Amino acid sequence: MITWITQLPLWQIIRVLGLISFVLLTAGIGLGISYGFPFWNGQVKAKLYKIHTLSTNTGMALGLLHGMITVIDTYTPFSWSGVFIPFTAARSPVLNGLGTLSVYGMLLVIFTSDIRNKIKKKLWFLIHLLSYPIFVMTFIHGYFLGTDTQYTGIRWLYLVSALVVVGLSLVRFMITSGGPARTAGKPVSR
């Protein structure tokens, strides 16, 4: 059984899982940002929330699997400590450490979202804001460490993902802070 597993194209599986995880996490953060737009009705918000949760949780699970498979990969094997203890990987410790920290951060964000009704809303919100630095760490990990970034299409995937998150964040900030998108004299509900 072990021989069969190690004969799988593990390096390709690791790369694909990393890319899919990044895309799903980008979708999750983008939908989470969009969820706060005040113009959605209840049904749309409910659908956005479901897709946001599904894409974030799936992206997190695939990202965790992406890291764990490196332990059995024969092309560039990692130790368990190199995977789970930030900045201890033998190869590119800083970039791999950012990936590990991203996993821990996402686990915290997801866990506190699951217990959202049991903690103070302000605390939940502050923890949820960690999604931004987590996204940045994930971007840096994938863009600078990912072997597929040599391909123009993959570089564009990362760059467009970052632009989407930044763009949606700016729009949400403008809407909720009284920028040009706010109607005169009317407070925007959050």
Rank of each mutant, 00 (worst) to 15 (best):
S81K: 13
T76G: 10
V94C: 03
I14M: 02
G185Q: 05
A27E: 11
H66C: 02
Q12Y: 11
Y49G: 08
L64N: 11
G63Y: 00
T138M: 06
L126C: 14
R190E: 08
L65T: 04
Q7F: 13
A27G: 10
W80T: 12
I72S: 06
L19I: 15
M106T: 12
I20Q: 03
I2R: 13
L145G: 11
T58E: 06
P86L: 12
L101F: 14
S177F: 01
N57S: 11
G142Q: 03
I127A: 05
A181T: 09
P180H: 12
T147S: 14
I69Q: 10
M60L: 15
L25H: 02
S102P: 02
L17R: 02
G167R: 01
D73L: 02
T26E: 00
M106D: 10
L107S: 09
Y143S: 08
L107T: 15
I72A: 11
W80I: 15
Y158S: 07
I69P: 09
F78Q: 13
I127Y: 04
G42T: 08
G146A: 07
A89V: 06
I110V: 15
F125D: 10
M60V: 11
M106Q: 12
F139S: 01
T152W: 09
D73A: 03
P77T: 06
T6Q: 14
M106S: 15
Y151I: 15
T100I: 02
F87T: 04
S131K: 03
I69N: 08
T76E: 12
D73R: 02
I51E: 02
G32E: 02
V166P: 00
A162P: 01
Q7G: 10
M68Y: 01
L62P: 05
G99Y: 08
L48P: 01
W124H: 15
L126Q: 14
N117Y: 09
L64R: 10
P38G: 07
V103C: 14
K50G: 04
H52K: 05
G18P: 02
P187K: 15
V171H: 00
G97P: 04
Y132V: 00
Q7H: 15
P9H: 04
L98W: 05
H52F: 04
V16D: 13
F87A: 06
V103G: 12
I14S: 02
K50C: 08
M1L: 13
V23M: 13
L64P: 12
F144A: 14
T147E: 14
L123I: 13
W40M: 01
K47L: 13
T183H: 08
T176K: 00
G99K: 05
G153D: 05
I154V: 15
W11Y: 13
Q43K: 15
W124N: 14
Q7N: 15
I69E: 09
R116D: 03
I5M: 05
G59A: 02
A46H: 07
